[in-house]
């Protein structure tokens, strides 16, 4: 399902247009009629020592939890720096970080399923499990993995980073042709820059891969995000009224809405 960035920009930026000034709903979306049997998994490729993407993922999980749903981050111990995320356990607003001993995508997927089923029992409002995937595990993937069924990629508008993001999307779609690949543009200084970055990515994906990407909004380049990263304090708790926190909440809504649609009931 293609989605335009303009759909999600209503109240993210101070200079937002009248349409954008409408008050966001208090709740993220409809409460699922039934408790899910398993929380959906969102694969997030994050490189070793990639502090920004790790922090964005964790902050996104916190925002989803603030919307009343369950949110976890599962990260393998190998293939990355576990110090990028908080220690294992339950953190702010109930967000849980789980470290996995998995040494490959298959093992990681099995662990993720266990966690998704187990935590679903405590998630009447639904939720999501973010699974950090070490990018080298995507390269040379011999067989399809349903862990890649839904992936979220964070990218800035930098040309080289867009090329990298395109390449990772290509790997994911090559390994799972049914994959839904979502893009969140971060570090955007201007709305036009973010739109241009997403348009560039999706144009190339359609042209070369015959596939569309889903937009999961943008995170404005707000210093508070990076200060929160340094302080290891979620932006939504440290500066809840900042443009960055509101932007993150909007991305969280999009993810949670889709998670509720995709939840196994």
């Amino acid at each position: 399902m293609p989605r335009d960035l303009a759909d999600v920009l209503h109240y993210l930026l101070p200079e937002a247009e009248p349409k954008a000034a409408r008050t966001p709903p208090v709740h993220a979306g409809p409460t699922p009629a039934r408790r899910p049997a398993a929380l959906p998994l969102v694969g997030v490729p994050i490189g070793e020592s990639d502090v920004v993407r790790s922090a964005l993922t964790w902050n996104l999980a916190v925002e989803i939890a603030r919307l009343g749903a369950r949110a976890l981050v599962l990260a393998p111990k190998s293939g990355g720096d576990e110090a990028l995320l908080p220690v294992s356990g339950v953190g702010p607003v109930g967000v849980e970080v789980v470290h996995s001993d998995a040494r490959g995508l298959g093992e990681l997927h099995r662990h993720a399923i266990d966690v998704a089923v187990d935590r679903a029992a405590e998630a009447p409002e639904g939720g999501v499990v973010f699974v950090r995937i070490p990018p080298p595990w995507l390269a040379g993937l011999a067989e399809s993995s349903s862990l890649l069924r839904w992936c979220l990629l964070f990218t800035s508008g930098d040309a080289r980073e867009l090329l990298e993001t395109y390449g990772i999307a290509k790997l994911i779609l090559g390994a799972n042709e049914c994959a839904r690949v979502g893009i969140t543009v971060h570090g955007a200084r201007r709305l036009a820059d973010a739109e241009q970055a997403f348009a560039r990515l999706t144009r190339s994906t359609e042209r070369h891969l015959g596939r569309e990407l889903a937009s999961y909004g943008l995170l404005v380049d707000d210093l508070d995000v990076y200060r929160a990263i340094v302080a290891r304090r979620p932006i939504g708790l440290a500066h809840p009224q900042s443009p960055a926190a509101r932007a993150l909440r909007d991305v969280a809504r999009l993810v949670l809405d889709d998670a509720r649609e995709m939840a196994v009931v």
Partner: peptide
């Protein structure tokens, strides 16, 4: 790249680049 992957890992063609 920042992900630790190279252009070769990503199988990028000249046209894609």
């Amino acid at each position: 790249f920042r992900s630790g992957l190279s252009e070769a890992d990503l199988h990028l063609t000249a046209e894609e680049r």
